[in-house]
Design a protein around this nucleic acid. Structure first.
Lengths: 111, 111
DNA sequence: AAGATTCATCGTAAAAAAACGATTAAAGAA
DNA sequence: TTCTTTAATCGTTTTTTTACGATGAATCTT
């Protein structure tokens, strides 16, 4: 058993969950911070900053890229990453509106 | 090998990641929606709505509870859940400020 | 051309997450 | 008291995630 049933939820629920999943590891939060801090794009510098092996960082970068939160371009022997603000903002806005829509309906405490 | 290194990141990074992880499954997003929709608290109704077995839903509820996003009280033979707006809002605000702090520093595109 | 640097990918291992059925504990109804 | 309902927990299986070292491809440097 152990079949994944994610497909049975709405697309929006799946998208939100995927976005949240991309942020669901401190390393990836840290990477986004680094990418935002340095205006120019970075690559192996991230490895220096994070307490993780190079291959692990690469893996996290890949996940962020798959989620569309960052872009990567090859620059000679090195890779240059930066935040994809378009996607990031899109997800952030969706998350914000999810939050407000949740909250509007439920102002008073229950339980 | 396969040792988790989450502790080596800042507390805030860990907290944000834990919050994101709690939202990182469509079922849990759906549960929050249901809890918000019905003003009063719900329990086995969630099981009826979600395409998941009772034990699986219970598991997801537990995770949301552990993350502090929902509260649960026992009401006779049934369990009543509701969103913990205090924690939820706290995390939402932190996430918002993370987003803005990221964005402020990096307005122009790179790469 | 040879060596060094950079980083993605591969293979692997351990841990965590997702899912379910079965069981159990608690409370209500009969 | 016995039966039923409700939901948490246990045990288990499969999948995914996290992490690393090793390898390999691409690009620079010499």
């Amino acid at each position: 058993m152990a079949v994944h049933k994610k497909e049975e939820f709405t697309q929006k629920e799946q998208d939100m969950a995927a976005f949240a999943k991309a942020l669901a590891h401190p390393a990836r939060i840290a990477i986004l911070k680094v990418l935002a801090q340095r205006n120019e794009c970075i690559c192996g510098e991230i490895v220096e900053i994070l307490p993780l092996a190079q291959s692990t960082v690469s893996q996290h970068l890949k996940e962020l890229k798959n989620a569309g939160l960052i872009d990567g371009t090859i620059d000679g022997p090195r890779s240059c990453y930066c935040i994809n603000w378009k996607t990031f903002e899109k997800f952030y806005n969706e998350f914000s509106s999810l939050f407000t829509s949740l909250k509007v309906k439920n102002e008073k405490a229950c339980c």
